[in-house]
Computed example of a mutant assay.
Amino acid sequence: MSQKFQEIIDSERPVLVDFFATWCQPCKVQSSVLNTVKENVGEAARIIKIDIDQYPAIANQFGVRSVPTITFFKQGELLYKESGVHDVNTLTQLIKLYS
């Protein structure tokens, strides 16, 4: 997964990553927010989810200490990282800003 993850974040298309856990209630809220964000931005950015319990090495690589944590990459560069639930407008603006 690590190699594939690196390929995804290195791509031309910006990538928003939602680090989450299945046991995390706020993560469930974030997930539904991301569905709306995906509708808003279409193909402008890719949105992926990383389960920190399944992929702890990736979470550790980016210093994810709490969930949900949203990160945003463009051509492999980490442009944004923030923990906590983000609203639709914030994430949509973030994608538009960096795309």
Score class of each variant (00 low, 15 high):
L97K: 09
S83K: 01
D53S: 07
F72H: 11
V29R: 03
V41G: 03
V37N: 02
Q30K: 05
G42S: 12
Q25Y: 05
P14A: 10
I95D: 00
E39D: 11
K4A: 07
E77M: 15
P68R: 06
P26T: 06
V64N: 05
S2Q: 11
F72D: 03
Y98T: 00
T36F: 01
I8V: 15
A59T: 02
K49G: 14
F73T: 15
E39P: 02
I47S: 00
T90P: 07
S2T: 13
F19G: 02
R65W: 03
G42C: 12
A57G: 08
G84Q: 04
F19C: 02
I9R: 06
T36V: 13
V64F: 01
V64Q: 05
G76S: 04
S11T: 11
P56K: 11
L97W: 05
T69G: 00
T69E: 05
Q54N: 14
V85I: 09
E82R: 15
V85D: 00
S99R: 12
R46A: 12
Q30N: 08
L34R: 00
A45R: 04
V33Q: 02
L16H: 01
I58L: 13
S11G: 13
E7N: 12
E43I: 05
I58C: 13
G42F: 14
K49V: 15
P26R: 00
V37Y: 04
A57C: 05
E39H: 04
V64K: 03
I47T: 01
S32Y: 10
A21P: 02
I95F: 04
S31W: 01
P14M: 08
I47M: 10
R46T: 13
